[in-house]
Amino acid sequence: MNTLTTSFSTHHSYSHTPSTFHTTLTPIQSLSFRTPNHNFRLLCFSSDPSHSLPVVVVGSANADIYVEIDRLPLEGETLAAKSGETLAGGKGANQATCSAKLSRPTYFIGQVGDDAYGSLVTGALRSGGVRLDSLTVVPSVPTGHAVVMLQSNGQNSIIIIGGANSSGWPSSLARQHLDLVAQAGIVLLQREIPDYVNVQVAQAARNAGVPVVLDAGGMDGPLPPQLLNFVDILSPNETELARITGMPTESFEQIAQAALKCHELGVKQVLVKLGHKGSALFVEGEKPIQQPAILAKTVVDTTGAGDTFTAAFAVALVEGKSRKECLRFAAAAACLCVQVKGASPSMPDRNSVLDLLNRQ
């Protein structure tokens, strides 16, 4: 028998200057609806849209060291780069920045080192509007960083050094972090932090009735079954989908069969990113929803495009848009992302995405 209970949850709204954050507390009424297997929380009212249920991103933050080259070097070859610079990145930070720039209240739970890279990443997140109360500085390890080899056609090759993303996490997450997860409208995870962290977060979200989106990008190892049990939407690209399932993904029919394998593994929804071929959402028991790519006239840098897509989809979803609308919104955001160099710096704002959609 289902039970319906009424509760009041407290949410935090933050206004900030570049160096300070001010906290106010606003009660929001919500309904908790329990079934034998899940709890679902529905927002009943909020007097101010800025107090809407937030996106919570748990994941990685990197300093991306960019080198621009005409082509990748051959084995044993040395090439001169045309230019080089360091920009903020990391799948978690990218998704948090994207969500915040799309005008959704966004919190980031992650780790950086006490070093120059950590300061760079923290500054970029803060300037993007991300709320950083749950960002931890770990003095004993360096900030995660990556070497991004950017070719003239906009394609890239990336080497990641985990640093604070993979080391220094506690065996049990702090209660305030799990409480924040339980207060979210949706939670975004990726695989550039330890699996045991993702499992704790996903379980806390499931217990609170909060949907979880897992971006499959990051570690190459198999997905832990206990993590898949708590994930509502798995979001791989074609290569990641092939790795997860051990199946080919060269045609749409093959992708559909691989998505069916994910359903068998326990994931009800599979959001597949197909690059210039668009995207597709596979919901168990339903017809796939396909979305063509919105193609950019000029591709400057594809770094972060998948993160933009996943985060934009999640923002649209938590706002109550239809699945088709979510896919279209995400496609527009990704189109804008690839036209700007850098990962976090290329995340589009909400007005730009809506303007692009209005021109389609």
Rank of each mutant, 00 (worst) to 15 (best):
D179N: 15
L180M: 15
V181S: 09
V181D: 13
A182W: 03
Q183K: 14
Q183S: 15
Q183G: 12
I186N: 13
V187N: 14
L188K: 06
L189D: 09
Q190I: 07
R191S: 12
R191D: 11
Y196R: 13
Y196C: 14
V197Q: 05
N198P: 10
Q200E: 12
A202Q: 05
A202D: 10
Q203V: 12
N207M: 06
G209F: 03
V210Y: 04
V212N: 13
L214A: 07
L214E: 08
L214N: 09
D215A: 12
D215L: 02
G217I: 01
D220I: 01
D220Q: 10
G221W: 01
P222M: 06
P224V: 06
P224S: 05
Q226I: 07
L227M: 06
L227S: 10
N229H: 08
F230I: 00
V231N: 02
V231H: 03
V231S: 05
D232P: 04
D232V: 00
D232W: 02
I233V: 14
I233M: 00
S235Q: 03
S235V: 01
N237T: 09
E238L: 06
E240V: 07
R243P: 01
G246V: 02
G246N: 03
P248I: 02
E253Q: 11
Q257S: 09
Q257H: 10
A258R: 04
C262A: 08
C262F: 06
C262T: 10
H263S: 04
H263F: 11
E264C: 08
L265T: 01
G266K: 00
V267F: 02
Q269Y: 01
